[in-house]
């Protein structure tokens, strides 16, 4: 039996998770929530992580009923993400590794999402839609790489949703995307928004500018309500994502879809994806907010796989990088 602990802090979620082989022992998360209308910035987010990390770590150990002495390998997020917040979790991972003389493994955040999604849902070789505040990618596995079939050419879909929520001054608690989803349920009228699919890629920044330009006009004339706009934005951007996912599935002849990343817990997106999957006789795998949203367990899962095939990361390499593409990682644990 091997026990792995994962530290995640690449954005505004700080998470520590512990697994024993394939069993989740604990999954503790603390989110840095900003006031309505404001996003999270690197310096303040890092400050939040510094203030909370030791409590989150202790809570994760208590819930798992172990001490750091029992841990076999320490895993942390190397990137991609915001530099300052990433550095905090890496620092703690290195310090506890030194205190207890444990090997350390640097993990790619995107690979963490994919491997944990596969473990939790039991999907074998899915086409992956990875959608979050920082990433939007359609991914399929081939010859020891997760290959990116399509991605955003500007901002991530979650970033588009977050910034739209800021325009409407929606609450960031528990997350802007969740509040958009709830309001959208009351929307009835579809506003005409740009639909931007370019080959296998998508673009969201133009949609956001278009909304910024028309927002006050729409609301003042009562042509559309905030609820209508939440509904319209979700319909438009999710349709774009499903189009490119379906095309990737047709290309690789896949009959499984796995949705991962923070936006993946949106039930509207899951429902739309399910319709597409049923039409193609495919199976949809998705998880709830415990595992979709950034967490420590995903880092422990991917880290443990990496540790078992490649061993630990050398000390000098236990740094952080803001850019670290999904297809940069050699997937040594799959055929």
């Amino acid at each position: 039996m091997t026990i792995a602990i994962g530290f995640e802090g690449s954005a505004n979620k700080l998470g520590v998770g512990i697994i024993r082989d394939q069993d989740v022992l604990s999954n503790v998360r603390h989110t840095y929530i900003t006031p309505p209308g404001e996003g999270f910035l690197p310096r303040e987010t890092a400050q939040h992580h510094r203030e909370c990390i030791l409590n989150v770590l202790q809570k994760a150990l208590d819930e798992a009923k172990i001490t750091l002495k029992d841990v076999d390998v320490i895993c942390y997020t190397k990137g991609p993400g915001m530099g300052a917040p990433l550095t905090v979790t890496a620092l703690i991972a290195r310090t506890v590794a030194q205190i207890y003389n444990k090997p350390i493994v640097a993990v790619n955040h995107c690979i963490g999402h994919i491997e944990m999604g596969r473990l939790i849902t039991g999907s074998v070789n899915p086409t992956v839609l990875y959608v979050s505040g920082g990433n939007t990618q359609v991914i399929a596995y081939s010859r020891q790489r997760y290959r990116i079939f399509g991605e955003t050419i500007d901002i991530a879909v979650g970033n588009c949703l977050d910034r739209f929520a800021r325009l409407l001054k929606l609450s960031n608690d528990p997350s802007p995307g969740y509040n958009i989803e709830q309001l959208a349920k009351k929307g009835t009228k579809l506003a005409p928004l740009p639909y931007v699919v370019k080959g296998m890629d998508v673009s969201f920044s133009g949609i956001l500018s278009y909304i910024e330009e028309h927002l006050s006009g729409w609301l003042n004339s009562k042509e559309f309500t905030p609820e209508d706009l939440c509904f319209s934005l979700q319909e438009t951007v999710f349709a774009m994502l499903i189009e490119i996912t379906e095309r990737a599935m047709a290309h690789v002849k896949s009959s499984e879809v796995l949705i991962v990343g923070g936006v993946g817990c949106n039930e509207k997106l899951q429902d739309m994806m399910k319709v597409m999957c049923e039409e193609r006789n495919a199976v949809l795998h998705a998880t709830d907010e415990r595992f979709c949203i950034d967490n420590g367990v995903m880092i422990a899962v991917a880290g443990l796989l990496q540790y078992k095939t490649q061993g630990h990361t050398s000390w000098a390499e236990t740094t952080c990088v803001q850019r670290y593409r999904t297809d940069d990682v050699h997937i040594s644990w799959r055929e």
Partner: peptide, 20 residues
């Protein structure tokens, strides 16, 4: 400060590190 707080809370450290 974060390193020293971590050592205080989770220490004392073992004498050597073998995974460089």
């Amino acid at each position: 400060i974060l390193v020293t707080e971590t050592i205080q809370l989770f220490g004392p450290p073992v004498p050597t590190y073998n995974y460089y």
